[in-house]
Design a protein around this nucleic acid. Structure first.
Length: 443
RNA sequence: GUGGGCGUAGCUCAGCUGGUUAGAGCGAGGGACUGUGGAUCCCUAGGUCGCCGGUUCAAGUCCGGUCGCCCACCCCA
């Protein structure tokens, strides 16, 4: 009996893995650029954390969490999202005592028990960041700009939608207004919306049913009912986005599924992905830290759906030639090939030394490198990747392998080379080759 | 949780209204080609036809169930 993977949980290999790495690398480069520090947070948390933060009437908590009792009979859950755990860690470690503000970034797997479909998996990856103690709309602008830059850098063509859903002062009165309106049309709403009306009336606003859409168009608009503070905050945010030249659309019907959001919410959507087209989303959660037992500290953040972004980047990785492979012509030449392998691999530190420390023992090599473009390109390729073959076979075979594995250079290690302490370097793109003495790498 | 479509070689797929040893292309390994890759030609390996049960003289093909995949709903990144 063959053991297979669990439904909705996937191995990430090959091209998809390369794209994941590229996303991760880009994400951390840009978050670091804007002052975020990477943190590593638990995948397993107490179930109660998510019930209290995400909201006990959300679908995530009601039916999508992987929960179980551990051997100590603790009710635990695999994290369905990242913010709750980050906030818990922020409070538990009392980070607010030693830092005036805190910016965290993370990348990791999340779990939700849903039926899989395009852009939806039971184990999926999010790259997210959280910005604690950030009351000003400057923070909203900066966070959205960061998200915008990441997607831009990854060549993901997404449109930004923003909204404000107010704070506890203005959302309450608006909610009753909305409920009153929807109740007057209740018989016309779809059955889902009739249920939403009772459990989470704001969610009626993003129903896709055309009949509901017409009703929603006439519904009271939250933006007309914000308190002065929220209104000003939203106005300032729009101004900041304009200065940053981040294009956006205001969507007064944009509400997020998680309970903890206040004021600013935003989503980046693509149109190439089918039904699951939100690739990045986030917002402000000014009350969450307090609700989870911490001080009254405003914060905001976002999460990017890595699997979804990767789907948009199918063509992003092209097979370019890179690196070098050593081709010993027969078994006898193995020791010489291994020696060359070590010398070349270690020589690449020279490339760094050129920048910092020209006064080196390997001055001659450095001088040569500065003049010899061919040699420099070759060593750059060596630094990128250097491999020995998986087995020694006919030269023809090994060249074919070098080609298929997309090496930029093949190094021929033969009797003649070994006797003169050199290697023959063949550029697999141009077909040109030259010989290189190993003497200069020694000592 | 609900609905629709689909499961045949590593991948993409043929396989007629059930009929005997289940095919192709690509990929993989080897050879033609003894120090030079991409091209061409030849050879080889790789399958309990997703799994279990049923109908039948006979099932990859029909029926039921189950698991998985894809798509959508719900919902979300």
């Amino acid at each position: 009996m063959k053991i297979t993977k669990v439904k909705g949980i996937y191995d990430i290999l090959g091209k998809e893995a390369e794209i994941f790495s590229l996303i991760e690398e880009t994400f951390f480069r840009l978050t670091k650029h804007f002052g975020y520090k990477r943190v590593f947070l638990p995948i397993l948390e107490k179930e109660e954390l998510f019930v209290r933060s995400v909201g006990d009437s959300t679908d995530i908590v009601e039916k999508e969490m992987y929960t179980f009792l551990d051997k100590g009979k603790r009710k635990v859950a695999l994290r369905p999202e990242g913010t709750a755990g980050a906030v818990r860690a922020y409070i538990e470690n009392q980070v607010f005592l030693s830092e005036s503000y805190t910016k965290w970034s993370y990348f990791g797997e999340m779990f939700r028990y849903e039926n899989p479909q395009a852009g939806r998996r039971r184990q999926f990856y999010q790259a997210g960041c959280e910005y604690f103690n950030a009351p000003s709309p400057l923070a909203d602008g900066e966070v959205i700009y960061l998200a915008y830059r990441i997607l831009k850098e990854l060549n993901v063509n997404a449109k930004l939608y923003i909204n404000s859903i107010g704070c506890d002062k203005c959302r309450g009165p608006y909610k009753t207004l909305l409920i009153d309106y929807l109740k007057s049309k209740e018989d016309k709403l779809c059955s889902d919306c009739q249920k939403r009306l009772k459990r989470n009336p704001l969610r009626v606003l993003d129903c896709k049913n055309p009949v509901c859409k017409d009703i929603i168009d006439e519904a009271p608009n939250i933006l007309d009912h914000l308190c002065e503070c929220c209104k000003l905050h939203f106005e300032q945010l729009k101004e900041i986005l304009d200065i940053l030249k981040v294009p956006y659309k205001i969507d007064p019907f944009l509400v997020r599924g998680l309970d903890y959001y206040t004021k600013t919410v935003f989503e980046f959507k693509v149109d190439s992905l089918g039904a699951q087209n939100t690739v990045l989303a986030g917002g402000r959660y000014d009350k969450l830290i307090k609700e989870l037992g911490g001080p009254d500290i405003p914060a905001l953040g976002f999460a990017m759906g890595v699997d979804r972004v990767a789907l948009c980047m199918k063509e992003a990785i092209k097979d370019t030639r890179h690196g070098v492979i050593l081709l010993p012509l027969d078994e006898k030449l193995l020791p010489y090939a291994v020696k060359a392998f070590k010398l070349l691999s270690e020589s690449t530190s020279i490339l760094e030394q050129i920048k910092e420390d020209i006064d080196t023992k390997k001055f001659n090599l450095v001088l040569k490198l500065m003049k010899d473009e061919k040699l420099r390109d070759f060593l750059v390729a060596v630094r990128d990747r250097i491999e020995l073959p998986n087995k020694i076979s006919k030269i023809r075979k090994m060249f074919s392998l070098a080609d298929k594995k997309n090496f930029a250079y093949a190094l021929i290690i033969g009797e003649e080379e070994a006797s003169k302490n050199l290697i023959t370097v063949k550029n697999l793109d141009t077909g040109n080759q030259f010989q290189l003495s190993l003497n200069m790498f020694e000592g």
